[in-house]
Simulated assay, not measured.
Amino acid sequence: MAHQLLGAKGYAYVANADLKGVSPGSETLRELFSEAAPCLILIDEWVAYLRNMYKVEGLPSGSFESNLTFAQALTEAARLAPDTLVVASIPASNIEIGGEGGHEALHRIQNTFARLESNWRPASTEESFEIVRRRLFQPITDTQLFAARDAVVKAFCDFYRSDASEFPSTCREGDYERRMKAAYPIHPELFDQLFNAWSTLDKFQRTRGVLRLMASVIHELWERDDKGLLIMPSAVPIEANPVQFELTRYLEENWVPVIEKDVDGPQSLPLQQDRENPNLGRYSASRRVARTLFLGSAPTLHMANKGVSDQQIKLGCVQPGEAVATFGDALRRLTDRATHL
């Protein structure tokens, strides 16, 4: 850190402490920061680093306690030095914390920062939409593409208003049109399911997990030359191995046979039902309903309020110009025949 701030001159401030494997004092760090200001110190995976030295002695980097002493000296120095800011991230799930050493490190770091911290709220769902969209798609700059986006969004919003009883009331509000434009070409319902339901799973990291999954989904849809107006829950190709892996890695092990039997795959009931009924098959209605139902309900298995409503299922399935009743019929048939849905 000192070398990054001021090169060899900066390292000279902390050289003796570094060689001894002890923490430099807060006054030494204050002098370093004052000379190097403005300073921004970013620390990630600190808990993971500290838990590896928990109850281990003789390490070149010092002991667990000396590193926690450094955390205290660092925060004190940043408080006293001009134009200096320390930003540290801490894990949110038990899996990321990892064992006794991780919990002890987290507890001690939190106590150290609590005296001086300003909590930085994680990105809201709306902000996360934008982060994911920008990472996965180039920005729209062509006026014709803006017009195409607006036409698609208008078609969906008009559709939701024309069949008001079939869809949740929220999608008929004016703000929903704004959300659709902000999330385009991804449907807000897919983002809502991922950021609200899936992010409750202990292993699912909100933005990173959504990015990994959506990158796989978009690649599969691109390879298939998908013609959907938006990327909706029903468009997620759950039968594709990369996509299925990204979904099931957060769930219990017994989900794979459930998917193969009742959700998506060459031998699945929804595909069979679509083949048996031409009215359903022309929209792949059963398959799209099953995908939407899985995405909305799988992460809620152990929650008090499980599953999704039929209005949410239709919101995640139906596109303008399609018959809503067909998807309702597909849902009823799956309810009667499926083992797990």
Results as ranks from 00 to 15, higher is better:
residue 8 A to Q: 09
residue 12 A to Q: 10
residue 14 V to F: 08
residue 22 V to G: 02
residue 22 V to N: 08
residue 32 L to H: 11
residue 35 E to W: 10
residue 38 P to F: 07
residue 40 L to W: 04
residue 42 L to Y: 13
residue 56 V to M: 07
residue 56 V to Y: 10
residue 56 V to Q: 13
residue 58 G to K: 04
residue 59 L to A: 14
residue 65 E to M: 09
residue 67 N to A: 14
residue 79 R to V: 11
residue 80 L to D: 08
residue 80 L to T: 06
residue 88 A to K: 05
residue 90 I to L: 15
residue 93 S to R: 01
residue 105 A to F: 13
residue 106 L to R: 10
residue 119 N to C: 14
residue 121 R to S: 14
residue 126 E to T: 13
residue 132 V to S: 08
residue 135 R to E: 14
residue 147 A to N: 04
residue 160 Y to I: 14
residue 161 R to I: 08
residue 166 E to C: 13
residue 169 S to W: 13
residue 171 C to K: 02
residue 172 R to I: 04
residue 172 R to F: 14
residue 174 G to R: 14
residue 179 R to Y: 12
residue 197 A to H: 08
residue 218 I to D: 00
residue 219 H to R: 09
residue 219 H to T: 11
residue 222 W to K: 10
residue 230 L to G: 03
residue 235 A to D: 10
residue 235 A to M: 12
residue 242 P to V: 10
residue 244 Q to E: 06
residue 246 E to Y: 00
residue 260 E to A: 13
residue 263 V to K: 07
residue 265 G to T: 03
residue 268 S to D: 00
residue 270 P to S: 07
residue 287 R to H: 05
residue 290 A to N: 04
residue 290 A to E: 08
residue 301 L to T: 02
residue 302 H to K: 04
residue 312 Q to H: 10
residue 322 E to L: 12
residue 322 E to H: 03
residue 323 A to C: 07
residue 328 G to W: 03
residue 328 G to S: 02
residue 337 R to F: 02
